[in-house]
Amino acid sequence: MSNKIIPWKNGIKDGIPIALGYFAVSFTFGIVAKKSGLTPFQAVFMSAVNLTSAGQFGALALIGTSATYLEMALTQLIINLRYCLMSCSLSQKFEAGAGWPHRFLVAFGVTDEIFGVSVCKAGKLNPFYNYGLMSVSIPGWMLGTFCGVVSGEILPARIISALSVALYGMFIAVIVPPAKGNKLLTGIIISSMLLSLLFAQLPILSQISQGFKIIILTVAIAGIAALLFPVKEAAHEG
């Protein structure tokens, strides 16, 4: 029993910053959704079943231009392809015997944030930890959407601005502690940030969408790092 309840509670605790960050992002999404002509129910429904910020913003643009369903499907595939990479990484954290239902449920919650927090947990993945993360962050995502649609610009910009940093703060809290005293990881993290900055600044590279930039840099940097610094069997603590 405690093998389920305790990880679930830990997930809820770690999920609170995700929920706050989601609230800020989805609040903005709600405002844009309203401007695109979606009803509150449609906007919240879209948030509930998709859980993807870039994908949802992209969808609004497509719906506005009366795109075909095929265009919608291809756009989502391209924008969200990075989740495929994340699920590959997450698949190795599963117990080999983990049943199908857990895989189907955990898959629904593979977002940048839930992935980042759960994959860096020590040891094997406990699905109930992911359910804990999901059970606060998904309502946060939906509530933010709802408030954005119905209240528009009522929430003070200061609050949204402050909450906007929550997700990044969380990412930093995930990657910095394991890098402490580990020169290799520190080097990889700093190079990743510098190359990401370079991609954002250089003329042609800055045209690449955020989703593809993440895929290109992840495959390149992790690929080179794996070649130069293969991880020993023992280093399984993650």
């Binding site: 990075r82 990479l85 994340m86 590959c88 990484s89 190795q92 940048d112 992935f115 980042g116 994959v119 860096c120 910009a157 200061r158 601005s161 402050a162 906007s164 940093v165 990044y168 990412f171 930093i172 995930v174 990657i175 394991p178 890098a179 990881l185 990889i188 993290i189 700093i190 990743s192 940030m193 190359l195 990401s196 900055l197 954002a200 955020q210 930039k213 993440i214 840099l217 992840t218 940097i221 992790a222 690929g223 790092a225 794996a226 070649l227 610094f229 293969p230 991880v231 280093a235 993650g238």
Partner: peptide, 29 residues
């Protein structure tokens, strides 16, 4: 496979670092 294993081990660190910086600099007012 040691190479694939190492690759997947590095993925989250690279992904999260790339997503954080420089995006964080333009996230606030």
């Amino acid at each position: 496979n040691v190479y694939l294993k190492s690759f997947l081990y590095y993925v989250p660190y690279v992904t999260l670092a790339v997503m954080t910086f420089p995006a964080i600099l333009s996230a606030t007012a």
